[in-house]
């Protein structure tokens, strides 16, 4: 695993309502960490959280709940939307109680049916919004998880790239 600190893949906000609004820089940052938390393997996330010391107390506002989101595609990939099929999703909302900024609420929507994953992601979302915890969670959880994902992606695309066809034209007869 590389330890280089590379910026987390920015969440795609093209076309979003606040895409060009500089005031939404904080929102974009939050979108980026929520994406990393949702896409991480549950056990990797748990492992990373395990390295944080003295986590503050929190109360669960909306207990982790499994449900679905209907995934939409577009006709021709770029045209009008249609409903393709659902995916399982688990959501959770928690509120920090043991920090100076007590009202901070963390949200999570994560693919799959892993309730622990959703609750952990919601807790990290809340901590990342606090001054006290932001840097630590970013360094101990978000950046390493982003690196794991980037490494996996790089390894996979290397294998895929090896299957790229290099066509050459057969020249007939002339020489």
């Amino acid at each position: 695993m590389t330890v280089e600190t590379q910026p987390a893949a920015p969440a795609k906000t093209d076309g979003g309502p606040d895409a060009s609004n500089p005031a939404s820089a904080a929102q974009r940052e939050r979108q980026a960490w929520m994406s990393i938390l949702a896409k991480a393997e549950s056990k990797d996330l748990a492992d990373r959280i395990g390295r944080l010391q003295n986590l503050p107390a929190y109360s669960v506002i909306r207990p982790a709940e499994c449900g679905s989101v209907m995934v939409r595609g577009r006709a021709g990939g770029m045209g009008a939307a249609f409903n393709l099929g659902e995916m399982s999703v688990t959501r959770c909302v928690i509120q920090l109680t043991g920090t100076a900024e007590a009202a901070v609420i963390g949200h999570a929507y994560v693919a799959g049916r892993d309730k622990q994953h959703a609750e952990s992601a919601a807790l990290m979302d809340a901590l990342l919004q606090t001054e006290q915890w932001h840097a630590a969670v970013k360094e101990m959880v978000i950046t390493p998880l982003a690196n794991v994902a980037a490494d996996a992606r790089r390894e996979r695309s290397g294998k895929v790239a090896a299957t790229k066809v290099n066509f050459f034209t057969m020249v007939r007869g002339e020489n």
């Binding site: 795609k12 994406s35 896409k39 994560v110």
Partner: peptide
């Protein structure tokens, strides 16, 4: 591909995971 969803309580899109897809044009 990443799947984006706009939770009502947040009001902005977040990525909730990745899914594999096949597409044919």
């Amino acid at each position: 591909v990443s799947v984006e969803f706009v939770p009502e309580e947040l009001g902005f899109p977040i990525e909730i995971g990745e899914i594999e897809m096949t597409e044919c044009d």
